[in-house]
Amino acid sequence: MRSKLYKPSLYFFSFLIMVVCVFPFYWAIVSSLKTGSDLFKVEFIPNTIALSNFIEIFKEQPFGRNILNSVFVAVGTVSISLLLAVSAAYALGRVRFRGRSALLLSILSISMFPQVAILSGMFELIRTLNLYDNLLGLVFSYMTFTLPFTTWILTTFMKQLPREIEEAAIMDGASTFTICTKIFLPLLWPALVTTGLLAFIAAWNEFLYALTFTVESQSRTVPVAIALMTGASEFELPWGKIMAASVVVTLPLIVLVLIFQRQIVSGLTAGAVKG
């Protein structure tokens, strides 16, 4: 029934997609392992493996510090927004009250609106709060996108929990707080992991605020550090080092994604398909 070309073409397409997806990152790894003039030769498998790029980004630049900054900002952002979002998601997902749909819609639209639209207002606010060039300022400003997004996804997950479990707890005389902490939180663990991971990736990758609200190279996060990495002369970009830095920050992400594939896909679809 199906044409004889079906299987071969399927495999051909899969191969093509795979190569296109993986090659750029592979090329970054290959380039990061080359130094000097080797970098400018096209070799798909490096002849010699040089780790000097990796050593230099940690020695000549505060790249280790930048990674710590990113970890601090991402972990801080994720913890605070999960904490707030779980309680908000309970209200939005489990209780019927007037104005709920409107609230949900505004929270969704906040996650949609352009970051640049609040840039000058946020800049003023951060200076007023004395958080300029401070990692706490980044955690604070990252709430604008992680909080609405985590609230939205957790609300979707919250709605999926069976109604009778909550009613059983109400009959048992549990308070709202007890229901949240003793019943829903344990049941939501997988959703929390998923949501936290997505928020972590979003915070880890953020660029605009990090670029705008930090000055010193000591307080930069990883994306800004990579974007602003310069070499010996102003006109020559240190491609080898940039690639090494890229590999260093991306590998952990890719490992995370590979481990949590299933959860990530379910989180993405919970956030969007049901939107």
Partner: peptide, 17 residues
């Protein structure tokens, strides 16, 4: 799995790559 890789790479990194 391969398809997830471009998604996981930070935009800045992919721009540089």
């Amino acid at each position: 799995t391969a398809v997830l890789i471009p998604w996981a790479i930070p935009t800045i990194v992919s721009a540089k790559m």
